[in-house]
């Protein structure tokens, strides 16, 4: 990770499936990424964490976040969360990686339209899946993430 950064990037993982969360975490770690990973299992928990108690997002001021977002959440659509992130003054610059099973073209378009930075379809084949996550880990290791305002 970027050692010069005073605030190392926190990876926020919004994923309702515990198994997926565990597999993602393991493979990110295998890529040598040691950053904090905050797992959130529902849309409400995610919004609570991202926006803080005052729902302004100022709680993450000066912090660098990388958000991994699953679209199929039980309590709300991931697209709604994406919209809330990208319209929030504090955290709108945080990169959002949509990581989901949906490979529907319209859905992918919609996410990019809403400001998603990367869209990755979870491969069912585990070798491909593990490979994709590890590559994402390598990508995270070299990318610059701006701090929230």
């Amino acid at each position: 990770m970027n050692t010069e950064n005073a605030n190392p990037v926190t990876i926020v993982m919004i994923e309702d499936d515990e198994g997926h969360a565990r597999l993602i975490e393991r493979n990110i770690r295998r890529a040598g990424v040691t950053n904090d990973i905050v797992p959130l299992a529902s849309g409400h928990a995610a919004l609570e964490y991202l926006l803080g108690e005052d729902e302004s997002g100022s709680v993450h001021s000066k912090r660098a976040l990388l958000i991994l977002l699953d679209l199929n959440l039980p309590d709300m659509s991931g697209v709604d969360i994406l919209q809330k992130i990208k319209t929030n003054a504090h955290i709108k610059r945080s990169p959002v990686v949509v990581l989901t099973t949906t490979d529907d073209e319209r859905e992918i378009q919609r996410c990019y339209d809403q400001g998603a930075n990367v869209y990755i379809t979870k491969p069912v084949n585990y070798e491909s899946f593990a490979n994709a996550i590890r590559q994402l880990g390598l990508f995270v290791a070299v990318m610059q993430v701006p701090a929230a305002e």
């Binding site: 499936d17 997926h20 597999l23 099973t101 949906t102 069912v124």
Partner: peptide, 17 residues
């Protein structure tokens, strides 16, 4: 079909693990 895929990812993933 989409929702069936999610658990399948786990089955295949943890099988590999």
């Amino acid at each position: 079909s989409h929702d069936l895929r999610a658990p399948l990812v786990n089955i295949m993933g943890f099988t590999s693990e």
